[in-house]
Simulated assay, not measured.
Amino acid sequence: MSDSRIPIDHTPYDALLLLSFGGPEAPEDVVPFLENVTRGRGIPKERLAEVGKHYFLFGGVSPINEQNRELLAALRKDFAGNGLDLPVYWGNRNWAPYLVDTLREIATDGHRRVLVLATSAYAGYSGCRQYRENLADALATLAEEGLPELRVDKLRHFYNHPGFVRPMIDATLAALDELPADARDRAHLAFTTHSIPDAMAESSGAPDDPARGRPGGAYVAQHLEVARLVAEAVAEATGVAGRPWELVFQSRSGAPHIPWLEPDICDHLESLHAAGAPAAVMVPIGFVSDHMEVKYDLDTEARAKAAELGLPVARAATVGADPRFTAAVRELVLERAATERGVPVERCALGALGASHDVCAVACCPNPRAPRPAAAQL
């Protein structure tokens, strides 16, 4: 991918922040990490230890921090190799390196205009607004400490950028090749993402009708668009038209009485088996890297369910630090910088939904508990 269509000029920005969820890196980190994730919800430590059992299966270590280190290194290499002299920092929402500490480092290093890449490609409260709330909290802390003011702007949602979609297409094709030869052409595609409460999904995105002032449906719509793009590209590459596919969900964590997006991936595998499907490929389009919710919910639980059913399955890799994705991030940085300078540029996006907005509206993806300040909004 080339960004020759956009000037190699990052001004007015002087730093990029890779902002992620974070994860434990030792068994003793698991409960404190989960306390950070669930703060304010009154969940006892005993319950958190039970919730954290899948981390203990992996030695108490989530893969996400190491994967972020790899992405950080890949971004720095890509930027340097393409003449983009922009420092890249990394901070987390729930574990070290903490966001507030990283922003403090950025301010101390003399930077003032910061672009933010959140490791979530889609609209939604948890994937976008909550990160912007965390940014607002951290900036307020720095102001209390008397540090110079930072302005932060978040890069647009990149779910339909070719640098995100095309690696998933190749990963799906590679996963199909792992299946028994006589099942590949009839294998189903199960596109997976994190389940969220129905009400949160319905309120996700920018307001679709200013008169109503209510957003709606972006989380599911954006995932369906990516699933369609991947499915159509796979059909073209394999010559298999009409291959069945469905958007399914995983990693539900809420109270049983609250409706969440369905079907769950394990329930979906049962349905496929009952309907006589010969095989399935799980394609985790909702995740940037192979972190715990991929390693446990798909590679452990879902594979165990498939083995119990006798249903052959394969799992497509996530995008991770694929060079096409790091090039896409570079494009997004240069695109946003040019826009801030008033220079018109082409905004890359595949499919029918077009490029996402740069700045979130106040009504975007509302906090389901109570309104809170959020950074990088109109």
Rank of each mutant, 00 (worst) to 15 (best):
A237I: 11
D264V: 01
A221F: 02
F249H: 10
H257V: 01
E262T: 07
E246Q: 14
A227I: 05
G254V: 01
Q250M: 03
A237N: 13
E232H: 14
G216R: 06
V226I: 12
L298Y: 11
G286I: 06
P259C: 00
R228Y: 09
I258Q: 03
V240E: 14
L298Q: 11
E270K: 14
V283A: 05
D267N: 04
S253T: 02
D297P: 04
L298V: 10
H268D: 04
T238F: 12
F287G: 06
E225S: 08
E293G: 07
P244C: 05
M292C: 07
P278I: 12
D267S: 07
E293Q: 14
S253R: 02
D264S: 02
A255M: 01
H257R: 01
A235Q: 15
A277I: 10
S271N: 08
I258S: 00
M282E: 12
A279N: 11
V230S: 06
E232A: 14
A235L: 08
I265G: 01
S289P: 06
L272T: 07
Q222H: 09
G276E: 14
M282T: 10
E270C: 07
W260V: 00
Y296C: 06
E293T: 08
V234E: 13
V248T: 09
H223D: 02
P284C: 11
L269S: 04
A227G: 10
V248W: 03
V288Y: 11
L269K: 06
A233W: 14
S253K: 00
H268L: 03
H223T: 02
A227S: 15
G242E: 12
S253V: 02
E232M: 08
V283T: 10
G239N: 12
P263I: 02
A233H: 13
H257L: 00
A235P: 07
L229G: 05
E236M: 08
D267P: 02
I285T: 14
H257M: 00
G217K: 02
V240H: 15
M282A: 13
G254A: 01
D290T: 10
V281P: 11
P256W: 01
D264P: 02
R228V: 04
A274W: 12
V220K: 11
A221L: 06
V240G: 08
P278M: 11
V230Q: 06
G239A: 11
V283I: 15
E262S: 05
